[in-house]
Amino acid sequence: MSENQHSTDVTSADQNTFADPGIPEHQHRRGDVDAAASKRAERQVVVLFAISVIGTIASLVAYFAFRPDGTTSGTRLSTLTLGLGMAFALLGIGLAAVHWAKAIMNDTEVSEERHQLSSPDDVREAAVASLKAGVDDSGIARRGMLKGAALSALALFPLTIAVPLVSSVGGDWNVSKLRHTRWEKGMRLATDPTGRPIKASDVTIGSVFHVIPDVSEKERSSGEWLSEKAKAVVLLIRLDPRDLHEADDRKGWSYDGIVAYSKICTHVGCPVALYEQQTHHLLCPCHQSTFDVADGAKVVFGPAHRPLPQLPITVDDDGYLVAQSDFHEPVGPSYWERLK
């Protein structure tokens, strides 16, 4: 090492450092010099252990005395009494053991030498020699083909597990499903979670309806429904037509001031459910992205970037609101091939 490349020790010269005064003198506790104090501490420890026993018994009594009856107060009473008994049983032991250690056991500090962690040089040399002997015995250094074959076999065999796993772990791997939802032309809009179809006349100004596609009761209780619902939920809002600004290409997507927007945030997919009827803003409770329903659900605040997708709607012959088609873009958070 060069002179200039300082190591950072500060004062190596011995005469230039203070001397270590050594371990401070042991201070006696009251119990070390006073037999009565020692006896008192012992009694305290015994009492603490006794409290633990009482806690256990109390917990068992509570088990039989308070059978949870399914009501809020009954469950609370059972939880509270069982738990308090348990807490006393545990704290009694803990406090007793620590008090014992602190007040009664010998509290003289001892010093133990540390040993160098690294192995001495001769041990290291012996270790290297053993490894070398092993390598020589195996002959791997001389036989290149053998080395290659062994490595290939080891590297390849995990595929026997990985290939079947990966092929099935992602379902059908059909990510194009992200583009489509359950909505189709003519499908009625229904209330969530009750499933009542909605008439245009039901939607008064300032109302917000949480909407699902009008599918059969059976479909709604099927296992796949939640995955469909996760894309299909819609918010239905009626604005005063004077407040509503619509892009030219979307003029026909609303019905008499009623607009339908995807409820799934374009940020990371929370339900954007907070509608402030005076400002016409939709607010996401997860990350506060704010969308202006009167203006194409554009982002006015927060981490979302894109407007909420709009569901084109109209009414059918019976006056019920229906979808004109599916959404014209994928709903929910952005992903790499979203626009492809």
Binding site: T191, I198, K199, D202, G206, S207, Y275
Partner: peptide, 11 residues
């Protein structure tokens, strides 16, 4: 009232 939307009897 105020910011709260209306939940009429149809809803």
């Amino acid at each position: 009232p105020q910011s709260m939307p209306v939940f009429n009897d149809a809803n």
